[in-house]
Each structure stands twice: as structure tokens, then as C-alpha cells.
Simulated assay, not measured.
Amino acid sequence: MFLGTYTPKLDDKGRLTLPAKFRDELRGGCMITKGQDHCLYVFTRDAFTEMARKIAAAPLTNESARVFQRNLFSGTDEQNPDGQGRIAITSELRRYAGLTKDCVVIGAFTRAEIWDAQAWQEYQDQHEDEFAKAQEEVLPGLF
């Protein structure tokens, strides 16, 4: 389970140190792929494989499914964190997410997300007021 917000820096070689709390879960390797809203998703291998099987089962006759499959799978990179918990982020994934030196890694329960720090702040500013409304829509009557 991935929870919390962390602010690692991207080094000159395009490596990012994963939060210590995420390392045990990602020790067996991880899959980094394009996420929604121009962030990167980081899944365990098992979680990615389970999701990929469902996505791959979509009919090839569905154009939206083909577009999604092509973008997701062609943009996915498998990584094994080194002894210091670092992963190398490909130049294409860094470009897609607009990653600069300052990054934010958030836990999104089933995955981690990597954001450029400025993009994350802008996303938060834009969507902060929607949080309460979304709670009512996603979890009606829970609170």
C-alpha cells in the first residue's frame, strides 16, 4: 500500500530515490509508466501484470482500447531499485511528466505517482476545492 507525500530530487543521471516507506514493496522490481494528468505511475510488477492482463483483454476492434494499450505499454519501463532505492527514469518518461530536479512522489494506495513539483502544486491548487465534492460523489454517506 502506497501512502504519503515525499519530495525527492532527480539527479543529473535521471535517477530518483524512492521513499524509504515504498522500498520494501518495490524491492522485487517496479513498472514505471505514463499516468493520467502527466504524472508517472509506479506499480509493483504483480499489480502491473494484473492490470495489464485486463487491458490486453480489450477487443482489438475497439480503437480507444488500441490507443490506450499502445500508449501504456510502449511507455512502460521495468526498473529494479538499486541498493540506495534509486530508479532510473527514461528520458521519454521524464519528458512526458515534465520532470525537473524537484519532484514529488505521492502514494495513491495501489501505486505511487511521480510528479514534477511545480506541476503537483498546480494540480493541488486547481483541484483542492473539488476534494470535498468528490468525497460526496465517490463515497456517498461514508462520512
Rank of each mutant, 00 (worst) to 15 (best):
I32Q: 12
G35T: 01
G35E: 00
G35K: 07
Q36G: 01
H38M: 11
H38A: 01
C39A: 03
C39E: 01
L40P: 02
L40E: 01
L40Q: 03
L40N: 03
Y41E: 03
Y41I: 11
Y41D: 06
V42D: 00
V42M: 09
T44E: 06
T44G: 05
R45E: 10
R45V: 06
D46N: 13
A47H: 08
F48Y: 12
F48D: 01
F48N: 01
T49C: 01
E50W: 00
E50Y: 03
E50I: 02
E50T: 10
A52N: 05
R53H: 06
R53F: 03
K54R: 15
I55R: 08
I55E: 02
I55P: 04
I55Q: 08
A56I: 07
A56S: 13
A58Q: 15
P59I: 03
P59H: 09
L60V: 05
E63L: 13
V67G: 01
F68H: 10
Q69V: 07
Q69M: 15
R70W: 07
R70G: 08
N71L: 08
N71W: 00
N71A: 00
L72N: 05
F73W: 08
S74R: 14
S74Y: 11
S74F: 10
G75I: 00
G75V: 02
D77V: 12
N80A: 06
N80E: 08
P81Q: 10
G83P: 02
Q84L: 08
Q84P: 00
G85A: 03
R86N: 04
R86G: 00
I89N: 03
I89L: 13
I89R: 05
T90A: 15
T90I: 05
T90C: 04
E92C: 00
E92H: 11
L93H: 08
R95M: 11
R95V: 06
Y96Q: 11
Y96S: 05
G98M: 09
G98K: 14
T100P: 01
K101Y: 00
K101M: 02
D102C: 07
D102P: 08
C103M: 04
C103R: 08
V104P: 12
V105A: 10
F109I: 13
F109M: 09
A112P: 07
I114A: 07
I114Q: 13
I114S: 10
I114W: 13
I114T: 12
W115T: 09
D116K: 09
Q118S: 13
A119K: 15
W120C: 03
W120L: 06
Q121L: 09
Q121V: 03
E122D: 13
Y123N: 12
Q124S: 06
D125K: 15
D125W: 13
D125C: 09
D125V: 04
H127K: 07
E128F: 11
D129T: 14
D129I: 12
E130H: 00
E130M: 06
E130F: 00
E130V: 05
F131D: 05
